[in-house]
Simulated scan of single mutants.
Amino acid sequence: MKKKLIKDTTEHFEKQFQHQPEALFLSPGRINIIGEHVDYNDGFVLPAAINKYICFAVSTNETGACMLIAKDLNDTYKFHINDTLVPVDKMWVNYILGVLDQLKSKGFPKKGFNIVFSSTIPMGAGLSSSAALECGFGYAMNKLFDLDLSKEDIAKIGQHSEHTFVGVKCGIMDQFATVFGKKKKVIRLDCTTLEYDYHNADFKNYSLLLLDSHVKHTHLTSGYNVRRKEVEEGMVFIKSTFPKVNSFRDCTEEQLLSIKDTLGPILYKRCHFVVSEIQRVLDAVQALEASDYQKLGQLMNATHDGLSEDYEVSCPELDFLVATVRKEPNVIGARMMGGGFGGCSINLVEKGTEKELISKVTEAYRSAFGIELSAYRIKISKGTAEFKNKLN
């Protein structure tokens, strides 16, 4: 699939511009093994880049003209490198313009460029196609124009683009995983300090399978904002009782339990999830290092239960998918992935059983909700990079 993506993107570029691209770049989507809703609560996350990509075919020119071609959307956007950049009514363009605006402020060369891009990252599945677009473009510009940006610079620029030109106040995890990903490695990332380290993720007899619910409930933005407010309120109570607690990572379940009545049922559940999830990420790192995949699966299960019951950001479709696959002996872990209210579940499955599982769950899901399921078998891959191999 990667070879076909590269071939199709290159051929489309040659057809549009009558010459070969100067360079090709691949920018991956990402998953998060464990660690949901803790990025804004001083926690850790455990993301990884995956083998679903946006491919960029790029060349420079001396005219200052810039052309962006989104092959999959059959859409084009033209401008001049000296133009003042502002958000436009095409959302896909804004991800790119937001990055370019920052690069220009850093002394971007006065040269034009042409880009064709195409993707195998499923749109709307929660695999961060937007971060792949931002960081892939930033990485390409950095290479072509020798901008001397670090990987961290590129991740931060991608995040800032989303804040400013797109209007989404996202965390740094998606961009970081896209840029820093390594093959068969997960990243333990401290979202507060950006300190990180890598941990083995060769699942041996198991594989990662994503099941796309194809639903995205409108609660996502409102629910996210309400949850943030609730945990902030909970932390005020915690700090007033335990002055030495600076953040949720300093708080214990015992401390929470001792002030359960003060917090009330809702705030207690929200805070309990956060404290438990931060610990689960640390436990998951130990499980991976010990190749204890049964333990990792148990932690994934516990995360889903916490997201569904304590944090209440799941939905009937995701709960159904998780409950259905957990009945299968070949599935050792399953949970919803991402912000919630739709998107994908991530499942740890015995290799060789995926096809039968997909067939069974697809039929059950169709019967229950009348929705066609999509399934993605994924592998953990390296982050954004230039593609230099010649295709045969």
Rank of each mutant, 00 (worst) to 15 (best):
Y95T: 11
Q102H: 09
G112Q: 12
I69S: 10
A57K: 12
L127K: 07
N114Y: 14
S161E: 00
G126N: 05
G98W: 12
D148L: 03
V116T: 10
W92P: 03
K143L: 01
K143W: 00
A65L: 08
I69W: 12
A131R: 07
F165P: 01
G107Y: 05
G64E: 06
K169T: 09
F145K: 05
F145A: 05
F108Q: 00
G138F: 03
D101C: 14
Y53V: 12
S119Q: 05
Y196N: 03
L194Y: 12
D174N: 08
P109V: 09
S150H: 06
G158F: 01
K156H: 08
L133F: 10
K143I: 03
I187D: 00
M91H: 07
M173L: 15
F165A: 04
K182E: 11
I154N: 02
Q175A: 08
Y139A: 09
M141K: 07
K111F: 04
G98E: 02
L189Q: 06
V58E: 01
K90V: 08
T193K: 10
A125V: 12
T164W: 00
F165G: 04
E62I: 10
F165D: 02
K151M: 12
D146L: 02
D197A: 05
I115N: 02
G124D: 09
L100Q: 05
L133W: 07
K90H: 03
C66M: 09
T84Q: 13
S59D: 11
N142Y: 09
K71F: 10
D146Q: 14
N142Q: 10
I154G: 04
A65V: 09
C135I: 09
I121L: 07
S118A: 15
F108S: 00
I81V: 15
P87T: 14
N142P: 08
F79E: 06
F145Q: 05
D153F: 13
H160A: 14
W92S: 01
I69D: 04
K183V: 11
E134D: 11
A140P: 02
M141T: 08
I154R: 04
G158Q: 13
L144Y: 01
K182G: 00
L103A: 01
M91R: 15
N114G: 02
I81E: 06
F79I: 13
Y198P: 02
L194W: 07
K183M: 05
F108K: 04
L133C: 04
S129A: 06
D83T: 14
V179E: 00
L189D: 01
K104F: 15
C170I: 12
T120N: 14
L194F: 13
G136R: 02
A70V: 12
L85H: 00
L133Y: 06
T178D: 06
S161Q: 03
M67R: 15
A155Q: 06
V99W: 07
M123P: 01
S119M: 10
K183D: 04
M67D: 07
L189M: 07
L189T: 06
Y53R: 11
G181P: 04
L100N: 01
T60P: 03
G126Y: 03
Q102S: 08
V88E: 14
A140D: 04
P87Y: 11
A70Y: 13
I54N: 08
Y198K: 03
E195R: 13
F180W: 05
L194T: 09
L73Q: 11
K143R: 13
F56K: 09
E134V: 09
S129V: 09
L127C: 02
